[in-house]
Design a protein around this nucleic acid. Structure first.
Length: 826
RNA sequence: GCCGAAGUGGCGGAACUGGCAGACGCACUGGACUCAAAAUCCAGCGGUGGCAACACCGUGUGGGUUCGAAUCCCACCUUCGGCACCA
């Protein structure tokens, strides 16, 4: 027999909604902003969502009971490709499809009993939202952080759109896994590279972020410091700029390599002997798909016939073209120092280029040495004119300065991070607020004309061009400047822009004449706790940090970082693999809620593993959690009667308690302590729940041993109340019902979190372990408040211990107060 | 290749600051209740040996530090995640 979870959960969900107990007051002090990453409205909740939102809900409910004014909102990342694909496949407009999905998922979320302030709900596809996404675009444009340029860009043939660098994983599309192609196109970019240093440096201030995520961002930004050095081309008036992190090795340069796309290539090979061969090589390298190019480890190159001059020693070095040099990193040119760079070494061996040692380990003489691999360690310079003998670290500085004086070098910093390509040749996204006027050129749409509305009646043909091109009412417009004919930009924005500022919008979601109220945003920000999957470690989290910094710069926000503490939850697995349709190992949250109730579903997902770790789904484990809730329910039936209801906790007198009652009270207060610490300090919900389970087991034992007439009513009442309060964040419905059974009319979720009484926890006698040579040989009972000296004495006088020590010499006594004593003997 | 995380019973996991390894849950075994089953309740449950008290072994592997190591250090193995010609 199960408790009637269906009736109970429905009942309380209705009451919570009617009474709006989760509505947040903007102007109360002691704010706490708890946020989970908003979902894409695919139509159905999956277990990953349930996990994400259960974790967030525990934190929100706990903080509320701790007296915080909690902001806990929910919304929809509602723009994106699946809606368009559904439109093509099922002939249903994206707006309609999305709205249905939102309605469906919202009802699923409500069935989980999550404590959201639904009045702040937002959807990225709503004109009242994307109007401000467009406004942000205009601000970036106005501040020179948004520009248009032609570039070789990543193109996904399956999604029929371009992608940002961050959205290409191992040369494949992040969304669909299709191999990405390179295309030359005119596109819009956000200048995230202007923020590279701040995005990197401020990572240090994010004390509440997992180290792992910070390292991933750091590597992604990839800052390298070094120098840019100019090599003049021999015979013609051209120069090659190279970026290097090792200016100390410049005397060891034995060749120069350019990327096949390098602009100087044409000019250099004009008069080359084997021109045709070289042209063929360049053509082949350029046409290679980015996948083949990054995955082929074979370094290939070709000599251009031209030479350049090493600015350090005026030596002529050959200029080659090689497939391993990337045009979009550094300057697209690399100085080859085979003796001190492994990749250059291999290339030099293959093409029989000279290998010149310019750094040797301190105290060794390498003037005659033949290298079998590059020496990339620290050392002392040789063969480097007046710099010979200098430590290479120092030489790097000095050589750069020396060349800089001659105008042939400067200190330089290079990043791996690229500017954020934000144009998408798709329909279901925020229209880019730009027009192309026949007379005035490229113009941003004036603020007062926002939003540029997405037309709802559009035909879909995935052609690689925006469907908006086929929509004349949208496409053709008048120039606001000259009144002449103009065309609208038909690309839409990357949906990652929508999700890069939604957390600020929640602070003033109903604002109609500005993106947010600055005062409110400043009050609520930062997000105190952000919760979501690690898959967003770079994409979403980096973009959000970038925009937050921009908002700070233009005075829209007084915070430089959006997320104070970040919790990256693990995946939900079944049979060791991520749940997916193709593997057929999906467990539907709806089914689980239907069969066992939301409280059971939540409890299991919180109990089965700590939040950061992957969680293995177990149907049996779910049943176990359901059994536990039934056990709690029956415990109330067993213990709760009129006398208990009438008992007054204030009448509790510690001194007069029987051994059993004192024991029960100790268990209750210990559990409060354990649960509070586990939830507050460590987010270890699994151990918090197990502590409550232990308490329930303890109380069953108490009820078994102590006859009804001998039970202290106030102690029992305190125990029952504590259970409801401690369970409230995890299993909110049953906790509420139990709280009502105790005779209360105000919601358990509006109660103060229980505090524990240290004196109730204290025990008079404790059991310590007696070790002899680090092995536990006995256990003895001693008074808890005894001194270390007394403890030693007691242990040594214990007959049991004396027997064990018989005939042995005590070398050392190591007491650990409250725990054990180790007797080292010979 | 580089960077990072994790390896503990049959399983999910606990052990927070170096101090009694295996909390809690699942599975399993035995018992109670029942005509029977389910549900529930009680008990047991790392391995080996022993009637038993007990002894020995045991936290991926090998070494080390320490009175004492799942925990700290070194080397290695395996799994997972990130980056991948980054000059």
């Amino acid at each position: 027999m199960s408790y009637n979870f269906k009736e109970i959960e429905q009942k309380w969900q209705n009451i919570w909604e009617d009474k709006k107990i989760y509505k947040t007051d903007d102007f109360k002090d002691n704010k706490y902003y708890c946020l989970e990453m908003f979902p894409y409205p695919s139509g159905k909740l999956h277990m990953g969502h349930v996990r994400n939102y259960s974790i967030g809900d525990v934190i929100a409910r706990f903080k509320r009971m701790m007296g915080y004014n909690v902001l806990h909102p929910m919304g929809w990342d509602a723009f994106g490709l699946p809606a368009e694909n559904a439109a093509i496949k099922h002939n249903i407009p994206p707006a309609k499809w999305t709205a249905q999905n939102i309605a469906n998922m919202k009802s699923q979320l409500k069935k989980l009993g999550l404590s959201y302030d639904w009045d702040r709900e937002l959807a990225a596809c709503d004109p009242s939202y994307y109007k401000w996404t467009q406004w942000i675009f205009l601000k970036l444009y106005e501040h020179g952080k948004c520009y248009r340029k032609a570039a070789a860009v990543n193109w996904c043939p399956s999604c029929a759109t371009v992608l940002a660098n961050e959205q290409v994983i191992e040369a494949e599309c992040e969304r669909c896994g299709t191999e990405v192609e390179q295309r030359e196109m005119e596109q819009w970019f956000f200048k995230i590279t202007d923020y590279a240093d701040r995005l990197l440096d401020d990572l240090e201030e994010l004390k509440g972020w997992p180290e792992k995520v910070k390292i991933m961002q750091k590597n992604w930004i990839g800052r390298s410091t070094g120098a840019e050095i100019i090599f003049k081309v021999s015979g013609i008036d051209e120069e090659i700029r190279v970026f290097t992190t090792r200016p100390d090795t410049v005397f060891g340069v034995s060749y120069m390599v350019l990327a096949p796309e390098h602009p100087l290539v044409e000019r250099l090979i004009e008069n080359a002997e084997h021109r045709q061969e070289i042209v063929e090589f360049v053509r082949k390298a350029r046409n290679m798909s980015s996948r083949d190019r990054t995955l082929s480890t074979e370094k290939e190159g070709v000599f251009t016939g031209a030479y350049c001059i090493n600015p350090a020693n005026n030596e002529h070095v050959p200029i080659l073209i090689a497939n391993y040099v990337l045009m979009d990193y550094g300057t697209g040119a690399v100085m080859g120092v085979p003796a001190h760079d492994q990749r250059d070494f291999e290339f030099a061996v293959k093409y029989k280029l000279p290998i010149k040692i310019v750094i040797q380990p301190e105290g060794e003489d390498w003037s005659q040495k033949e290298l079998t691999q590059a020496y990339a360690e620290e050392g002392v310079l040789i063969n480097s004119a007046e710099f010979s003998g200098m430590h290479n670290k120092e030489a790097a500085e000095k050589i750069t300065e020396w060349l800089a004086e001659k105008g042939l070098a400067k200190k330089a910093v290079t990043y791996r991070l690229r500017d954020w390509l934000i144009s998408r040749q798709r329909y279901w996204g925020t229209p880019i607020p730009i027009i192309y006027c026949e007379n005035c050129g490229i113009l941003p749409v004036p603020e007062e004309q926002l939003p540029v509305l997405l037309p709802l009646d559009v035909k879909f043909k995935p052609s690689g061009k925006s469907p908006l091109l086929d929509c004349p009412e949208f496409l053709h417009t008048k120039c606001h400047k000259c009144g002449g004919d103009a065309k609208r930009e038909t690309d839409t924005m990357d949906t990652f822009i929508d999700s890069s500022w939604y957390y600020i919008r929640y602070t003033s979601a109903s604002e109609t004449d500005k993106p947010w109220d600055i005062e409110k945003a400043n009050r609520w920000m930062n997000v105190d706790q952000y919760i979501g999957g690690v898959e967003h470690a770079i994409l979403h989290l980096l973009y959000s940090r970038f925009l937050t910094k921009f908002f700070y710069d233009i005075g829209m926000l007084e915070h430089k970082e959006p997320f104070e503490n970040l919790l990256t939850q693990g995946m939900v697995l079944k049979d060791g693999a991520k749940m997916s349709k193709s593997k057929g190992n999906v467990v539907s949250p709806e089914d689980i809620v239907d069969r066992y109730g939301a409280d059971t579903a939540r409890l299991f997902i919180l109990f089965a593993a700590p939040p950061e770790r992957d969680l293995e789904w177990s149907d049996k484990g779910v049943e176990g959690c359901h059994r536990f809730l039934n056990r709690v329910w029956r415990l109330y039936d067993l213990l709760l009667d009129k006398e208990i209801l009438l008992a007054d906790k204030k009448s509790l007198n510690e001194k007069g308690l029987s051994e059993y009652d004192a024991g029960l009270r100790r268990a209750v207060h210990r559990t409060i302590k354990k649960v509070t610490e586990d939830v507050d300090k460590r987010f270890n919900f699994n151990t918090a729940i197990s502590a409550v389970m232990e308490l329930i087991n303890y109380i069953y034992g108490y009820a078994d041993k102590v006859p009804k007439k001998d039970r202290n009513k106030a102690v029992v009442k305190e125990a029952l109340e504590t259970i409801a309060l401690l369970l409230a964040p995890f299993a909110p419905h049953i906790a509420e019902e139990l709280w009502e059974k105790l005779g209360y009319t105000e919601s358990v979720h509006c109660q103060k979190w229980p505090s524990y009484d240290e004196s109730a926890i204290k025990e008079k006698m404790i059991t310590i372990a007696v070790q002899i040579n680090s092995r536990v040989r006995a256990r003895i009972s001693i008074p808890a408040d005894i001194s270390t000296e007394e403890m030693k004495e007691r242990v040594l006088n214990e007959p049991q211990v004396q027997k064990l020590l018989d005939g042995k010499e005590i070398v050392k006594l190591i007491p650990v107060p409250g725990k054990l004593i180790n007797i080292v003997v010979k």
